[in-house]
Write a protein that binds this DNA or RNA. Sequence first.
DNA 1: AATGAATGAGACTTCATTCAT
DNA 2: TATGAATGAAGTCTCATTCAT
Lengths: 206, 206, 206, 206
Amino acid sequence: MTRQRAAGGEDGRRAATRLRLFGAAVEVIAEDGYAAATVEAIAERAGVAKGTVFYNFGSKDGLFTALLEHGIRQLAETMTRAAQAQESPLEALDAVIMAQLRFFEEYAAFARVLLTEMWRTAWQETIATLRREVLGVYADTLREAVIRGTVRADLDVETAATALFGMVLTTSIERRALHPTRPVEQLHATLVDLVHGRVADHLLSE
Amino acid sequence: MTRQRAAGGEDGRRAATRLRLFGAAVEVIAEDGYAAATVEAIAERAGVAKGTVFYNFGSKDGLFTALLEHGIRQLAETMTRAAQAQESPLEALDAVIMAQLRFFEEYAAFARVLLTEMWRTAWQETIATLRREVLGVYADTLREAVIRGTVRADLDVETAATALFGMVLTTSIERRALHPTRPVEQLHATLVDLVHGRVADHLLSE
Amino acid sequence: MTRQRAAGGEDGRRAATRLRLFGAAVEVIAEDGYAAATVEAIAERAGVAKGTVFYNFGSKDGLFTALLEHGIRQLAETMTRAAQAQESPLEALDAVIMAQLRFFEEYAAFARVLLTEMWRTAWQETIATLRREVLGVYADTLREAVIRGTVRADLDVETAATALFGMVLTTSIERRALHPTRPVEQLHATLVDLVHGRVADHLLSE
Amino acid sequence: MTRQRAAGGEDGRRAATRLRLFGAAVEVIAEDGYAAATVEAIAERAGVAKGTVFYNFGSKDGLFTALLEHGIRQLAETMTRAAQAQESPLEALDAVIMAQLRFFEEYAAFARVLLTEMWRTAWQETIATLRREVLGVYADTLREAVIRGTVRADLDVETAATALFGMVLTTSIERRALHPTRPVEQLHATLVDLVHGRVADHLLSE
DNA sequence: AATGAATGAGACTTCATTCAT
DNA sequence: TATGAATGAAGTCTCATTCAT
């Protein structure tokens, strides 16, 4: 049982170990950040020996980079799928916000890790993927809305995309920390209200 | 008795050293985070000996807590002043956003530090001040708007306050990293548009 | 499973390292005391890296506690064996004194460490073992002598035990420092004379 | 008031400061030993600034040496006086033991300091005084007893002196730590019994 | 594929000492 | 005579990494 499927093995013993290490790493790093996390603590939580981390990822840095790539890929896929399932750009925008909220609800630890590490110069290469593929979903949606004329043509789409992503990220963490039982739907409603200008809708005549 | 001191004793050799250390610390910590920053590097940048940090703050942790308190107090004062100078709540909201933007433009390093460290359980006590005094300015302004009827009564004011703060924080850092020459006024316009619902204003009929 | 281990597992690479560290530590600490001894010096004398001390004992304190326990256990065993091999209580007393003298002759460094550290509040828990198991041998022997009627019934046995232990300890160190070539038998004779009242034997008629 | 008595001043402000520092130092050093004691803690307990220690004694070492000399001189004087007040050598011996017990009852901290530091190579010069003047009192008394024929001529007087001093020192500390309320007279009785051979007096015929 | 004892560079921290006041 | 801010050498301890098993 232990050694079959020798070639092509995307699963098997080794892949299982790697996944366990991802899970342990994201939790440990979420608690005190990458620099403060120790390989020892990660290995212990994963139930393997310290040496195993180095056998599988070469270095602490290697583990973290692989973890970031793994998480970003999943987040990007989730959000892209959500955007594609919608008809109008504004519906898509709401759906993407919801997808990001749900993803961070399930992987709250990853949200923390992203927030604290995405600005470090150290992982720029990996974070570029985030900017391209995740912020890209927001940007594409907004661009589509501009094309369809449902959003003003002079909007700074890139900045708006960052603002949206940061807003959802920040409030996801805030919710987790302060109101963990509150349903995400409620948070979604508040954010969508804010973005759609429904906050002060009767002021638009001013 | 040897040297008469200005009332309140906020000067003197020791206080000057502490301020120099604040400046050095925020820069060093902004670069790679609290855990990765070394006391050695901070002391060196401040032009004092390593021991001086411990003489003045007791520990690396003590320095960081004092720094957070110092920065949060200043940010809170700036934003409060901005809010008070305005007539209507919506003007106040715009002014507060602008105040936060300008503060983070001048103290960009502090923005980075806040973003990455404000969610750690380690500094919860100090961060509570942030939540009370800084997010409080947003919340108070929104509440005033609710009272005056310019904002819907059922808005989740606390969450909206966090969303606004997080949006400004995230975009401030994004701007610094990606478009450092772009004037803050432009970023302010985008954010205000987003918040006021001017992004998709002609959609409100939908 | 890789290497079968002798029952009780008191060998192996790790156990050997710990023993080497005990030997080095007792020598270094004897020279200038626990507080003045450095982990660096201990590791160097043991021929291992500094980190190895912390890997094996967790802290300087942990090393010292383990060392005290190790030494006290050995001393207690030696003295207990000596007491048991004798017929009468007074022969046992002489034998125990001799056992303590010989032990401190071989492990002179440990004698120094005991004398200087056994009164610190820091190691009270470990020192309680000394009091129970080492002073206990003296106390038991004296008590047996009381029972057999060879010693006055109103003697404060506990205090006398401490006095004997302290006397042997002090003179062992004095001998080592001032007359290292003098045989222990000579010292033993003096102490036994003192204890047996042969110092001033013809005075008893007074 | 502050500056009179400029010459010959064995008292005045400076001498008072020195005495306060002796008192503080002996307490602090008794707790954790010379090496672990900090000048800061000593100064604080004495109610002066740290710099004052160095102004008065030049160094931590200087303070300790002065303290040892001060204490040893007092102990020697007390014991010498006790010996001279007696008629027979054996009465003198008892009186000296009692003097040492009483001194260590009053200056328990100094007893601890002596026990732990008197064997260090660091203070050999100062400790030589102890050996000459304090152990000397025991040795002289025993020698006088030999001359008067009340003690066997072949006794190793120097070793016996050390044994007596160490016995009193050890039991003084033990008493302080374990039975602080018990009167010294009781301890004195036990020790004198031991020394006079009254422990097993009816065995001498064996 | 995995382990864990050992390492050593580098971190935080302590503290005797100096010196301007 | 006394102070206390500042220093920097030296100490304890952490931890990513290596390697024999």
